[in-house]
C-alpha cells in the first residue's frame, strides 16, 4: 500500500515527471544543438520525432527487441536529417522553411505507415530502479528512470567535451560561426553541416522511440504534443550548451508534471492554465535572456534565427 504523502506528493510528482517527461526534450535539444552549432536550424525534428515514434514501435514489434526499435528510429531519423541537410545545401533554399515542410512530411508518413501499428503491443524498454533503496512506493516509482535518460545525460557530457576539447568540435564551431573562416582554413562546410543535421535527426528519432517504447509507451497519432518543436526553443535558452540543454529539458518536464500533480492534491481550478505553465515559463525565460542589441551569447553566428 502506498504511503500517504499529502502535499509532499507535489514536489515528488514534479521530480518523477522531470525524469519521465524530459527525455524526449533532452534528445531532440542535444541533436538540434549540434545542428545549430554548424549554422543550420532544423524545425523538422518534430516530424522526425513522430516518425521515430512510429518506426521505433514498429521495429520493436517486428523484431521483438525494443533496442532494435530504438536503432531503427534513429536510422530513419538520420535519413530525415540527411534529406534536410542536402536540400538546404542547394543555393537559395531556406533551412527554416525546409524544416517546416519536413515536419509535415514526417508526420504524414508516420501516420500513413503507422495505421497498422496502433493496435499491436510492442515490447517496452526496461527501466532502471534508482529508487530501490527507498521503501516508499512513490519514491521508488518517481526514481524509476529509463536507460535512455542516462544515455542522454552521458551524451550531453560527451558533447560538452567534444565542443570544447576536440578537433571535431572546433571545426563544427568554426563552420557555424564563420563559413568564410572555415573555408579559408580548408574545412568542408557542407559535409560538416549535413553531418551535423544527420546527427540531429538521429537524436530526434530516438526521442520518438522513447515516447512510443517507454513513456507513455504507445504508438498513436496524438503521441507527440509538440516535443520536437519545443526542444528547438529549449536550445536557444540553453545557449547552445549541452549541459544547459539537460537542465532546460528537466525544467520543462517538471513544469509539465505540475498540472496533474496539483489536481491530485486538490488544486483543481483552472487546470488548463497550469497545463500552459511550461510554455509561459519558456517564453518568460526567452524574454529575460534575450537582448535587442547584442546577439545571444554563445550563438553560432551563421545561424539564421540569431542574425
Amino acid at each position: 500500500m502506498n504511503a500517504d504523502l499529502g502535499l509532499w506528493a507535489v514536489p515528488l510528482a514534479v521530480l518523477g515527471g522531470m525524469l519521465r517527461v524530459s527525455t524526449p526534450f533532452l534528445f531532440v535539444s542535444l541533436g538540434e544543438c549540434v545542428t545549430e552549432k554548424s549554422g543550420r536550424i532544423n524545425l523538422g525534428l518534430e516530424g522526425t520525432l513522430v516518425f521515430g515514434a512510429m518506426a521505433g514501435y514498429g521495429g520493436a514489434y517486428l523484431t521483438g527487441s525494443p533496442w532494435l526499435g530504438v536503432l531503427a528510429a534513429g536510422l530513419f531519423g538520420v535519413l530525415f536529417g540527411l534529406l534536410h541537410g542536402f536540400l538546404c545545401s542547394l543555393p537559395k533554399v531556406n533551412d527554416i522553411a525546409v524544416g517546416i515542410a519536413l515536419m509535415l512530411l514526417g508526420t504524414g508518413l508516420a501516420f500513413f505507415f503507422g495505421k497498422p501499428l496502433i493496435q499491436p503491443a510492442a515490447p517496452m524498454l526496461p527501466a532502471i530502479p534508482l529508487g530501490a533503496w527507498s521503501d516508499v512506493p512513490q519514491v521508488r516509482a518517481a526514481l524509476e528512470v529509463s536507460p535512455l535518460f542516462v544515455i542522454g545525460l552521458l551524451i550531453a557530457i560527451a558533447l560538452l567535451f567534444v565542443f570544447k576539447r576536440t578537433k571535431i568540435g572546433l571545426v563544427l564551431r568554426m563552420v557555424g560561426d564563420s563559413a568564410d573562416a572555415a573555408r579559408a582554413m580548408g574545412y568542408p562546410i557542407l559535409p560538416v553541416r549535413i553531418g551535423a543535421t544527420a546527427f540531429g535527426g538521429f537524436m530526434a528519432g530516438v526521442a520518438g522511440a522513447y515516447l512510443s517504447l517507454y513513456y507513455p509507451g504507445s504508438w498513436n497519432e496524438a503521441i507527440s504534443s509538440g516535443q520536437g518543436l519545443i526542444a528547438v526553443a529549449l536550445v536557444i535558452f540553453a545557449r547552445w550548451n549541452p549541459l544547459a540543454c539537460f537542465g532546460a529539458a528537466l525544467l520543462f518536464g517538471g513544469a509539465g508534471a505540475l498540472g496533474p500533480a496539483l489536481q491530485s492534491v486538490g488544486v483543481t481550478e483552472g487546470y488548463y492554465l497550469f497545463y500552459a505553465a511550461p510554455y509561459v515559463l519558456t517564453l518568460l525565460i526567452l524574454f529575460f535572456t534575450s537582448s535587442r542589441t547584442k546577439a545571444l551569447e554563445g550563438a553560432p553566428r551563421e545561424l539564421s534565427i540569431t542574425k
Binding site: 500500500m1 502506498n2 504511503a3 500517504d4 504523502l5 506528493a9 515528488l12 510528482a13 518523477g16 515527471g17 519521465r20 517527461v21 512513490q138 516509482a141 518517481a142 515516447l211 513513456y215 507513455p216 509507451g217 504507445s218 498513436n220 497519432e221 496524438a222 503521441i223 504534443s225 509539465g256 508534471a257 498540472g259 496533474p260 500533480a261 489536481q263 491530485s264 492534491v265 483543481t268 487546470y271 488548463y272 497545463y275
Partner: peptide
Amino acid sequence: IFTGDWAQPVKEAEATNALIDQG
C-alpha cells in the same frame, strides 16, 4: 484528474502516475 482534452497520451500517463502516487 482532468486532462483537458480527449487524446493527450503524455498527460494521461502523468495523471495516472499522480493518482497512484496519491494512494
